[in-house]
Each structure stands twice: as structure tokens, then as C-alpha cells.
Nucleic acid binder design. Structure first.
Length: 721
DNA sequence: CTAGGGTTAG
């Protein structure tokens, strides 16, 4: 060390680049004092700046502050600018930047320059207070630096981070000749506020687009969930031979993850390797996320294990991936490993572990972590953590304790907490609590379609058709419409999209034949008998409903046609899988010897050999079945209580038992003359963003004279929460 | 001697 110092005595500052320990830093500092270097304000400034900006050595910044405060000569603007700069990005406190700014102001020989404001505005963007940001802007104006192009683009970025698109717009309009950087900042600003089409307009009108502009546009599409366009733009980018970077691939992977497009994601991974794009922590984390959300946890964990450097995002991503794929125990293991490595978990890490505990029903462990969060890490629980705890207790059937958790929340419970309770009420058939939960949710957000559907399902579980009707009435009165079910499947790189009852796929004929074959085989296996006979015996209007296939059934059937034997069928669905489809898929996995992975709104279902990875944990508990059968109730009564509407419909229709239920139910159904048809896919609020390979779905089964039964189609029994 | 825009987990 000393030797190397001597040899580089002419410029000891170059040593800083390879310095990481505090001891080495002390040695260099001592050497600079001895040699008299630090008496020169210029060199002192350089030393301080280098220290402040040295990456991956967080202890250098506080050290540089100390040197500056204790040096005999007063600091220069250059040094202070660089300290502001160092504090303009996390993990350092951006508020500190203002101390250095005021140091410039209070020093009679110094005044802030265009660099000062560029850095100060950048620091302001990381604050939560838009007022401080505006004050930085005002100061720049007052000192005559607001016209500087660097300051201007930082200002757009800052207002964008405050979600103030009007401020961005005003600023941008005032610039006569905006350059690429400002335009790119505006793309980011419009994308952040959801005006992606306006962003695209800016992008389209740019005379010159560099790689970062492309990245910003692709990221914008990914951000708002327009994944197909993100991927299209990515291929356009390659066509223009713009250089692809880490940031590009992160957005591409995010798009693949949202789509659940494993093939595309794999391709992107291979592309990264082929182009030798450096696998940074951020990129690695995106890969983990992509593989997890495409149902390929094993690959996700491979990437995770291979990463030499990880951060909280990486760990949290791995944990949440395991949790959503049903691997709760592994999720907990990863958390324990993280603790062992003495990495500091954050709020989101705890959301992930708690979900892991929830999915495998480890209530006590979850409670332990909830307490640990506060006691060991000093993290105040967010509403989301309470939501996890409600879910944890709720899924375990401990509804009262779940309610107590809601009541213990320090602030007003959010709809997610009540939603978790409502979900538990559906599983454990608790009408009173369910009604309470729904009313609370509706106080907060009136348009939550999933909440209405869940409560309606609870009523349906009890055969309470009046309740079902009243929910539908309420939805109609409030103008709430249920999101249409939609499933997608990727076949040789193309994403095929199916809506409920959708006949518009070019291969629909073949799909229908396949569905017939499936039903025939499942019948032999002891399953299909129900549905088939139902189709025979039910009334005309019901028959029409029974023929409406859920979107995942269509997608799975297509997958069986289009995918080679042995290839896993992967489905991504926008809503939750219904009970009937869940059973149907379990049977297929056994009868056809096919692995099927369904990603629904909340989690993955890995079907293999007739079993699902979710262990049916979200379903109605059936333990009481035998007891009920043996005496107290008839099977129809049992079914009324235990089965969801359309499963019960098969039984009630008299195929199995003719116990007079049918007539009674019929008349009740006739009563509910609510002409609320399921929303047409074509005018869905937000059309799901999947690759439409076959045009707009047909809606011929939704013609105006929809029978009143329509709103109780099986699809309605699927929830969106 | 310093600079602006794009990227990760619920």
C-alpha cells in the first residue's frame, strides 16, 4: 500500500478507484495531508468529489463530508456541486443535498451555477415533497439557470416523478427547440401518467431517436401493461439496429413476465447471453421475475443461485416468485437464508414471506414474521401487511382472528384487507362477515367488480338466489361490470387469446372436436358423466349456458391440439380459475398425462397427475361431507351448501337426484329478471393486452335477447379479486 | 475539473 502510494505520489487520487476499505482510505488521506496536497483547494475539491461519487463504497460519502467540514480552506462550488450530486440519488438522503446548497448560498465567495441546479433538481425528484421540488425550480429561475438544457430536462424528470404531467407539459411547451433528452424525459412523463399514446406521438415526431429514447418508449409500454406493443417496438428497434442495452432487456423481460410468455422470455434470456449484455443485479432480478411469472420457478431459482451479487429486489423477487407458485416452504427458506446473510429485508420482502406463509397455511410462522418485522427491523407494517395477515388467518379458517386483525389496523382499513376477509368468507361460507366485508369495500371503492362477484358466490353457495339477485341489482345500479374472463396460450411464439364462450379462433372447429374428445375421455375416467348428462337433461335456456366454455377450457383444448406431446400446457388467465375448471384441468392432467400450468389472477396452479400445486387450499373445505351424507342432510342440501352455483346446477338439474329442488330453484331464477348481460369482450373496459392472432372476438352468443339466466353463467362464478 | 433523459421486487 505504502509502496504503491509512493510510486503514484504524483497523483494519489487515482488510487481511490481501487480503494474499498476504510483503512486504505485513511492511508491515502494521511498521505495527501503529509504531501501537502490537501492544502490546495482544487485538489481538496477533487479528492472530496471523487470520494463522494465513488460507487459501491457507501462509507466514502460520509467521510468526504467530514473532510470538507474540517478542512482549513473553504470548499469550492465544484466540491459542493459534487456533494449535491452524490446525494441526488438513493441510497443517500436527498434532503442532505440542500445543506450543501445552502452552504453555497451562505458563502460570500460562492454562488450556485447551472451544475448546482441540475444536481439539486435531480435530488428533489427523489423527495416526496413536490413543494420542495417547486422551490428548487423557483431558485433556478431566480438565479437565471432555468434555461439551461440540463436543468430543463432534470425539471421535466422531477415533475414527472411527482406525477405532475401538467407541469411537465407546460415546461415542455415553453422550450422552443427541445432536444432528444428533453423529449425522452417527456416520453417518460407521459408514460408515468398513463398517457402512453401521447408519449408515442412525441416518440414518433422525434427527428432523432437514440437508444435511450427507444428504451423509454418500450419501458412506457411495459409500464402501462401494453406488453405486445413493447415487444413489437423492441423488434422494430432491432430492425433499426439501435444498440440494445441492459435497460432495454429489463423492459422486455417485464413485458414477457406480464404476458406470461415463457417462450418469448426464454428467447430474451438467450438474446442477453448471445449479445453478451452484462447480467447486472437489475437484469438478473428481472429474469427471476420473468421466469417466476411464467410459472418456471426452477429456472428462476437457477438464475437466483447463479447471481454473484444480489440486492433486496433480487431476494424479494425470488421469494414472491416461490410464493406465487405455491412453494411457501422454499419461500420461507430463502428468507431465512437472507437473514443468515444479514441482508436487510424491507417492507416488500415481508409482503413476500407473509404470502409464502399464507399459501401453505403456516399461521404461527406468519405471525412470528409480522412481529419480527417491527421488533428486529423497525419496520412499521403497511396496510398490505395487515392484508396478508387477514389472508393468513382467513385461509386457515380463523375468520374471527382475521377480523380482529383488521380492527387492529392503526389507520382505516383499506379495501384489500376487507377483500382478503371476503375471500375467506367465500372459502368458509360465512355470509354475515362476507356482507360486512363487501359493505366496507364498497364504502371505499364502489366499482370493485371482484368484490360483488365474491359475495354473489357466497349467496350462491347457500342457494340464496335472492341474495345473488340483489348483488346483481346493486352492480347494475352502480354501473359495475364484471371483467370478462380471458385466457391466453403461447404456441410457437404466438400468443393466442380466448374469451369466455369465444368461437372466433380460426381453429374453433378443431377446438370443439377436441373438447368433445376431452369430455369423452374424462367421462371414462369418472368425471365427464356429470357435464355430459347435464347437457342432455337441462332446459333449453340452461343448455345455452352450459355450452358456454370458460376461456381456460378453450385455451387448454387448443393447447392439446397445437402443442407437441409432452410439452407443458401453459395458460395465463386474467381472473381466478373457477372450481369446475380447476377440477376439469386436474382430470386432464391425469387422463392425458399432460402437465398444465395455469397462472390466474393471484397465483399459479401446476397440474400434474391429477393433483394441483395449490392443494385446493382456496376451495370450499369438504371435510364435513361424510358426516352430512350419513344422516343430517340429503346430498342436495349438502350440495346447496357446499357447491358453487354451476356445479350444483348439474346436480340440481335432476341428473343425479330428483328431490324437487329443481323446480324451486327454477322459479327463483325466473324471478331475477335482471337483464344484465355479461360484458362483451369487445367493449370491455380495458381490453386485456395479449397478442390477438385472430381478430376481435365474436359476440354472437351475446345477442340482445339474452335469456335472463345469462348473468349466472359459469363465468360469473369466477372472481376478479 | 462536474451535467440532463431509459431499467428490478408487493
Amino acid at each position: 500500500m505504502i509502496n504503491s502510494l509512493r510510486t503514484t505520489a504524483s497523483n494519489p487520487l487515482t488510487l481511490l478507484e481501487s480503494t474499498s476499505t476504510l483503512k486504505e482510505l485513511h492511508q491515502i488521506h494521511a498521505q495527501l495531508i503529509v504531501s501537502g496536497h490537501l492544502r490546495h483547494p482544487r485538489l481538496l475539491a477533487k479528492f472530496v468529489s471523487l470520494l463522494a461519487l465513488s460507487q459501491n463504497t457507501p462509507h466514502h460519502l460520509p467521510y468526504s463530508r467530514k473532510i470538507l467540514n474540517h478542512s482549513p480552506s473553504s470548499p469550492t462550488t465544484f466540491a459542493l456541486n459534487n456533494l449535491i450530486r452524490a446525494h441526488s440519488k438513493p441510497p443517500f438522503n436527498p434532503l442532505q443535498a440542500f445543506n450543501f446548497y445552502s452552504q453555497i448560498l451562505h458563502s460570500p465567495s460562492l454562488s450556485p451555477d447551472n451544475f448546482t441546479f441540475t444536481f439539486l433538481v435531480r435530488a428533489s425528484a427523489h423527495l416526496t415533497s413536490a413543494a420542495i421540488g417547486a422551490a428548487s425550480h423557483a431558485a433556478a429561475l431566480k438565479r437565471g439557470h432555468a434555461d439551461d438544457p440540463h436543468v430543463q430536462s432534470s425539471l421535466i424528470h422531477m415533475y414527472s416523478s411527482f406525477r405532475s404531467s401538467t407541469a411537465c407539459h407546460r415546461l415542455f411547451e415553453g422550450i422552443q427547440d427541445p432536444d432528444v433528452v428533453m423529449q425522452t424525459a417527456m416520453i417518460g412523463a407521459y408514460a408515468a401518467s398513463g398517457d402512453i399514446d401521447v408519449a408515442r406521438k412525441v416518440f414518433g415526431e422525434m427527428p432523432h431517436r437514440d437508444a435511450i429514447a427507444w428504451n423509454a418508449m418500450i419501458a412506457g409500454y411495459s409500464h402501462v401493461g401494453r406488453c405486445r406493443e413493447a415487444l413489437e417496438l423492441f423488434s422494430a428497434m432491432q430492425g433499426e439496429s439501435v444498440s440494445v442495452s441492459e435497460a432495454t432487456m429489463v423492459s422486455v423481460l417485464t413485458a414477457c413476465a406480464q404476458l406470461g410468455a415463457l417462450d418469448q422470455g426464454r428467447w430474451a434470456h438467450a438474446y442477453i447471453q448471445k449479445k453478451r449484455i452484462q447480467l447486472t443485479v437489475t437484469l438478473g432480478t428481472s429474469l427471476i421475475d420473468m421466469y417466476s411469472k411464467c410459472g418456471s420457478v426452477d429456472r428462476a431459482m437457477e438464475v437466483f443461485k447463479a447471481m454473484p451479487e444480489k440486492n433486496v429486489y433480487t431476494w424479494s423477487s425470488a421469494m414472491s416468485g416461490l410464493a406465487m407458485n405455491g412453494a411457501g416452504k422454499q419461500c420461507i427458506e430463502v428468507f431465512e437464508l437472507m437473514e443468515k446473510e444479514e441482508l436487510e429485508p424491507n417492507e416488500i420482502t415481508f409482503v413476500s414471506v407473509l404470502r409464502g406463509c399464507s399459501i401453505v397455511g403456516l399461521v404461527d410462522r406468519g405471525l412470528e414474521y409480522f412481529d419480527l418485522m417491527k421488533s428486529k427491523y423497525g419496520i412499521e407494517p403497511w396496510p398490505e401487511h395487515y392484508g396478508c395477515m387477514v389472508d393468513l388467518y382467513g385461509r386457515a379458517g380463523r375468520l374471527e382472528e382475521a377480523l380482529q386483525f383488521i380492527k387492529s389496523m392503526p389507520s382505516k382499513p383499506h379495501s384489500g384487507a376487507w377483500g382478503a376477509l371476503l375471500n375467506a368468507c367465500k372459502i368458509y361460507r360465512n355470509i354475515e362477515l362476507g356482507e360486512l366485508a363487501l359493505s366496507k369495500i364498497l364504502e371505499i371503492e364502489t366499482m370493485n367488480d371482484g368484490a360483488y362477484v365474491l359475495l354473489s358466490n357466497i349467496y350462491a353457495d347457500f342457494g340464496n338466489w335472492k341474495g345473488v339477485c340483489s348483488v346483481r341489482e346493486l352492480m347494475k345500479a352502480k354501473g359495475v361490470r364484471k371483467e370478462p374472463g380471458c385466457s391466453v396460450i403461447e404456441v410457437s411464439g404466438l400468443v393466442h387469446e380466448f374469451f369466455v364462450g369465444d368461437k372466433s379462433h380460426p381453429m374453433y372447429q378443431e377446438i370443439e372436436v377436441m373438447l368433445g374428445e376431452i369430455n369423452w375421455k374424462l367421462k371414462l375416467a369418472g368425471y365427464a358423466a356429470k357435464t355430459n348428462e347435464v347437457l342432455f337433461d337441462i332446459e333449453e335456456e340452461e343448455k345455452e349456458n352450459a355450452l358456454i366454455w370458460h376461456s381456460e377450457k378453450l385455451a387448454i383444448a387448443y393447447g392439446l391440439i397445437a402443442l407437441k406431446e409432452g410439452v407443458t400446457v401453459r395458460i395465463v388467465k386474467n381472473l381466478r380459475v373457477c372450481w369446475d375448471c380447476h377440477d376439469w384441468t386436474k382430470f386432464i392432467s391425469k387422463v392425458f398425462g399432460r402437465e398444465i400450468i395455469v397462472r390466474d389472477r393471484n397465483r399459479f396452479h401446476h397440474f400434474k397427475d391429477g393433483v394441483c400445486s395449490c392443494k385446493d387450499y382456496w376451495r370450499v373445505r369438504l371435510e364435513g361431507f361424510n358426516e352430512l351424507l350419513l344422516g343430517k342432510f340429503s346430498i342436495v342440501q349438502w350440495a346447496r351448501v357446499n357447491l358453487s352455483y354451476h356445479s350444483r346446477k348439474y346436480i340440481n338439474s335432476g341428473v343425479y337426484l330428483k328431490l324437487g329442488q329443481k323446480k324451486e330453484r327454477k322459479s327463483e331464477i325466473k324471478d331475477r329478471s335482471i337483464p344484465l348481460a355479461p360484458p362483451r369482450p369487445s367493449d370491455a373496459r380495458v381490453p386485456p393486452d395479449h397478442h390477438l392472432t385472430h381478430g376481435v372476438p365474436s359476440d354472437h352468443h351475446l345477442k340482445p335477447g339474452v335469456p335472463p339466466d345469462h348473468h349466472l353463467t359459469p363465468e360469473f362464478c369466477q372472481t376478479t379479486t
